[in-house]
Amino acid sequence: MRDLRLALRAGGGFGLGLAFFLILAVLVPLGVGPAPETLALIAPGILWVGALLACLLSLDRIFALDFEDGSLDLLATAPVPLEAVVTIKALAHWLTTGLPLVLISPVLGLLLFLPGEAYLWLILSLMLGTPALSVIGTFGAALTVGLKRGGLLLSLLVLPLYIPTLIFGAEVVSRGAQGLSVATPLALLAGITAGAVALLPFASALVLRINLR
């Protein structure tokens, strides 16, 4: 609750990911050329990679501020399990970053000439996949919380972990665009998200405790 209110009050960071996503969707046609066929072909991948990078942008804020002002120490000694704190942090990150990305993605799909059949799958795959991005990112943020210049390292650690989500997520959209069955990648995407949400908070809390001592 507090994290959500904080993120909203702090401004900036909230819109930043969205703006980044938008800029990416504008830059790609400028780089690739305006041909609708080409853009339609690469749209699923561009949108998924864009969502991934936009998520990455706000990850280092998850714990850094709390670490600096001492709240993380206080939270670690509070009667709330650190696993729950981590989960709520990830949820707050998703609500402020992942969810807006999901909501704006159809507009960007329009810019990139995404075929009509794919919109449903775009929204559905992002809806299923972005929670995993937030949870995995929270793990990366917990790993690098005490480090100076942790930002770049965070990207290096988190991006490889994003690969399975990216592959299945983009696969759902591009199969959807071609009118193929999306059941398999969608199920695998959901499986990764479910597994990450269920297990990774324990790893995140563990590394957070190590970083605090």
């Binding site: 609750m1 209110r5 904080l6 002002d69 001492g70 709240s71 120490d73 206080l74 939270l75 509070a78």
Partner: peptide, 25 residues
């Protein structure tokens, strides 16, 4: 426990800061 830093969130009001910890405890 209360450490060197107070763990105060700058963008919340005084009451909100305390209410958060009251909810936690």
């Amino acid at each position: 426990y209360a450490g060197h830093a107070d763990g105060i969130k700058a963008t919340l009001t005084v009451t909100e800061n305390l209410a958060f910890w009251a909810a936690i405890y």
